[in-house]
Amino acid sequence: MASAFDQIADIIAETSDVPREKITPDSHVIDDLGIDSLDFLDIVFAIDKAFGIKVPIESWTQEVNAGNEPAEKFFVMKNLATRIEELVAAKSA
């Protein structure tokens, strides 16, 4: 089974104009890949469906905007994959 990173990278490549080969574990979804907020909604929808979870993107954004968390925690690909794996594990627990 593909890793969470690979699945998310595939989703981003299919949902946006970003070539799959450009998406690396260190890519920042917004700063490096140029995904805007509306495209990111489509990506989150696809992730929700693929993993059977509800990505709490609203609370993540609030945490970042409030300065409580760095954006990299949620929006760098390897970290995003970790967050998704955590959500999947929490759902299965």
């Binding site: 993107i57 609203e58 609370s59």
Partner: peptide, 9 residues
Amino acid sequence: VHDGSGYAV
């Protein structure tokens, strides 16, 4: 179709 976090379809 889907009730997401801060969005819906």
